[in-house]
Each structure stands twice: as C-alpha cells, then as structure tokens.
Amino acid sequence: MDSTLGNQKLYDRDFIEWCEVTVSQLKERNFEHLDIEGLIEEIEGLAKRDKRELKNRLTVLLAHLLKRIYVESPENFNGWELTIREQRRQIQGLLNDSPSLKPYLREVLDTVYRDALDDVRFEYQKTEFPDSWELNFDSTALLSENYWEEQ
C-alpha cells in the first residue's frame, strides 16, 4: 500500500498519530510520503480558526463596549471593563502573532458590530443603542480607548 494513502487513512482514523507521523516525516525530510491533502486541510483550518477567534473576540469586545458606554449600571462597570481589557489583550495577541489579520479585522468590523448590537439589544431591551458605531472605529482606538470617558 502507498504510504501516502496510508497516511490519509491514518488522518481519518487517529488525528494525533497522524500529526506525530507527519511531524516525523517533515523532520526527516521524507516529503514523498507526506499526506499533502491532509496538510493542506489542516493549514487552511488554522487560518480559519484564527479568523473565527478574532471575530468572536471582537463581538465580545464590542458588546461590552456598548454595555459600558450606553447601559447605566455602575455595579457592572468593573466587570465589563475587565472583559474589555481581556478581549483587547487577546485580540492584540492574535494580531501580534499574525499581523496579516489586521486587514481582516477592518473587513469584519461592520458585521461584528451588527452581531454585538443584536446581542446587547436582546439583553438590554430598554436601552437605546446606535444603529452604527458612532465613535472612532480605527483598530488602534478600538483596542485602547476608554470610550466611556469621552461621553
């Protein structure tokens, strides 16, 4: 049996073992036996995973920014600000690890804002939130400014 075909079956049968075999083959420069299709699928999946994580963290960040700016609930301010700090830290880490995600961040901001807006409008139905982000939407500002201090 062709070992490449065997690696493809291993990929479906035992992912961890497939990873170990693939790493071993790469270290040994044994390229002819690599499961190229499996490698392509995994590398594409890594990029999608990081994009998905960025979108999810941005949604949480924007939702908490909206709450902190527009919801008058001082007893919750500290918790919201802690969440804002953590999401900013994690987003900055993603951008530091993969600077090519920065254009993607700008690309998805409108979609992410709509998702965050939908969440906070559901949670705080008596609070008026703007239909569009009215403050500085630059990624640097988004990851650093305390917008609520400007109100």
Rank of each mutant, 00 (worst) to 15 (best):
Asp115Thr: 09
Thr127Gln: 04
Glu32Pro: 12
Ser73Trp: 15
Arg106Gln: 05
Leu39Cys: 15
Asn136Gly: 09
Thr127Met: 03
Asn76Cys: 10
Thr111Glu: 15
Pro130Ser: 05
Lys126Val: 06
Asn146Ile: 05
Phe137Trp: 15
Arg121Cys: 11
Phe122Glu: 10
Leu61Trp: 04
Leu65Tyr: 06
Asp12Phe: 07
Thr59Ile: 11
Asp2Gln: 14
Asn146Lys: 12
Ile16Asp: 03
Glu86Gln: 13
Leu143Phe: 01
Asp119Lys: 15
Leu143Asp: 00
Asp118Ser: 12
Asp14Val: 00
Tyr124Ala: 03
Leu94Ile: 05
Leu142Arg: 00
Pro74Gln: 07
Asn7Phe: 06
Arg57Asn: 13
Phe31Thr: 06
Asp14Phe: 01
Ser139Asn: 07
Lys126Arg: 13
Arg121Pro: 05
Asp138His: 05
Arg68Trp: 04
Glu37Asn: 11
Glu32Trp: 12
Thr111His: 14
Leu65Phe: 04
Asn136His: 08
Pro103Leu: 03
Leu65Trp: 03
Ser144Gln: 05
Lys67Glu: 10
Glu37Val: 07
Arg88Met: 02
Tyr11Glu: 08
Val120Lys: 03
Pro103Ala: 05
Leu5Ser: 08
Tyr104Glu: 07
Ser100Lys: 10
Glu86Met: 11
Glu134Phe: 06
Pro103His: 04
Gln90Gly: 02
Arg52Gly: 08
Trp18Gly: 00
Arg57His: 13
Arg29Ala: 10
Leu95Asp: 00
Arg52Lys: 14
Ser139Gly: 01
Leu62Gly: 03
Ala63Gln: 09
Phe122Ala: 10
Arg121Glu: 14
Ile16Cys: 04
Asn30Gln: 14
Leu10Phe: 03
Lys55Leu: 10
Ala141Pro: 07
Asn7Arg: 14
Glu20Pro: 06
Lys9Leu: 07
Asp118Lys: 12
Gln25Ile: 06
Arg89Pro: 00
Lys55Ile: 13
Gln25Ser: 12
Phe129Asp: 02
Glu53Arg: 11
Tyr147Gln: 02
Leu39Ala: 05
Gln25Leu: 13
Ile84Asn: 01
Glu107Val: 05
Asp14His: 06
Thr111Gln: 12
Arg89Lys: 14
Glu81Val: 11
Arg85Phe: 11
Asn136Cys: 14
Lys102Val: 13
Asn78Glu: 15
Leu46Asn: 07
Leu61Ile: 06
Glu32Val: 15
Pro130Asp: 04
Asp119Glu: 15
Glu44Phe: 07
Thr83Cys: 04
Ala141Ile: 08
Trp133Tyr: 10
Arg13Leu: 12
Leu10Tyr: 02
Tyr70Pro: 00
Leu117Val: 01
Asp50Trp: 09
Leu94Glu: 05
Asn56Arg: 11
Thr22Arg: 04
Leu109Cys: 02
Glu128Phe: 07
His64Lys: 14
Leu46Tyr: 12
Asn30Ala: 14
Val23Ser: 07
Leu10Cys: 06
Trp80Arg: 03
Phe129Val: 00
Leu135His: 13
Ile16Val: 11
Glu41Phe: 12
Cys19Tyr: 10
Leu61Thr: 02
Gln92Phe: 08
Thr59Leu: 09
Asp50Glu: 15
Tyr70Thr: 01
Glu32Thr: 15
Leu66Ser: 00
Ser139Lys: 04
